[in-house]
Design a protein around this nucleic acid. Sequence first.
DNA 1: CGCGACCAAATTGTCAACAATTATGTGTGA
DNA 2: TCACACATAATTGTTGACAATTTGGTCGCG
Lengths: 217, 217
Amino acid sequence: MEVGAERLASPAEVADAVRRGILAGELVAGQRLVEAELSESLGARRGAVRTALIDLTHEGLVERIANRGARVRVVSVEEAIQITEVRMMVEGLCGAKAAERISDDEIADLQALGDRMRACVDHGDVVGYSRLNQQLHETVIRIAAQPVAAEVIGQLRARNVRHQFRLAYRPGRPQASLPQHLAIIEGLAARDPEAAQAAVRAHIASVMTALRESDPA
Amino acid sequence: MEVGAERLASPAEVADAVRRGILAGELVAGQRLVEAELSESLGARRGAVRTALIDLTHEGLVERIANRGARVRVVSVEEAIQITEVRMMVEGLCGAKAAERISDDEIADLQALGDRMRACVDHGDVVGYSRLNQQLHETVIRIAAQPVAAEVIGQLRARNVRHQFRLAYRPGRPQASLPQHLAIIEGLAARDPEAAQAAVRAHIASVMTALRESDPA
DNA sequence: CGCGACCAAATTGTCAACAATTATGTGTGA
DNA sequence: TCACACATAATTGTTGACAATTTGGTCGCG
């Protein structure tokens, strides 16, 4: 272990730090991201910061203008809705594919997951529910076994972190989404691609509605 | 104008050159892309080549392994099908949105485009038809005015260039796709989102079928 | 002959200095 | 006071040299 010398952060670590900053609201939309400043505050070389910012630009979280630097990208509610709309289609596809491929064990796992979600809502455990929610979506995508679709969804979700976050803790949201989540599980358990796809779409459509209500501007 | 000194290619130009090479088949799948070699052959600094390769990696055209360099990414038929499947969903969404927003002028333009496509097929003008085909897809996406969806589709198409290309010149393809294209135009002209979406999906589904037949391995 | 250690070549990765560009401030004349 | 030119500072972009890593081959040994 070295003494006195801070370990230098790699590009990936810098990118993570900036992502977390955006999610936590420390880095506000539109804020400038000066390479030298980040370099010092994170203990990384400027080259690493530069690379990280380029990566984040490709992820849609950061906006870079030639010779004028990077800033935190403003994702408007309008854009968040469009992102969610695309996600609705792609994740619907995953729902259908998953229904075709799902195994008995996976059905049992999902139903257990559904029970736990119900319990969380009963006990008012919002953070636990949010975690299970994410787990459900990930599981569906994993079962679908469509790497391309999974990648696209990952990109879309990364861009929307801020809005997803805001939404998850709105009062009443868990109660509203629970039956939709259960419907997804039901469609998959029945191995009915159409039903699963419709359930996924209905759920994400309701997310879109919530987004619209959250900020009609 | 400088004498004797080749103008140095920018990262964007290097990326274009590599893309063209892949499309033209000069750069075969799996081929190594050595930074120093490209640097010399294209008259670019190694840094520019490096940047270009990183960009192409994000586009999914190139695969990079740490300390082992970049190679032309192999897009299997299986993956091409998955890509097309996602594109079917997202472009279907664009079809529906376009049907809601299309103007009278745009309807007229599309119908003229449809007539020209018919003419190309009648005269056996494959290359002309291929160009109009692309123009139709682009027009639908433009009318839909969904930047996020447009971006996703762009990424997916970039990855598939090689397979798209192979397919376009298969005998019988134009004859098969013409009625599908006309159905898309018809759905849009009727301002019927459901019909337009279904027509787009049907068309792209037939592309998927053609992909499967092209190489069942 | 097989196999591991070691060396040399090829290639990618990093860095610190420098160049280029853009933003900011300052003074000057009408 | 306003507009404009000009100098200065802040910031990003590029480069060539060097470091680190991987690869392929060769030698020696059992």
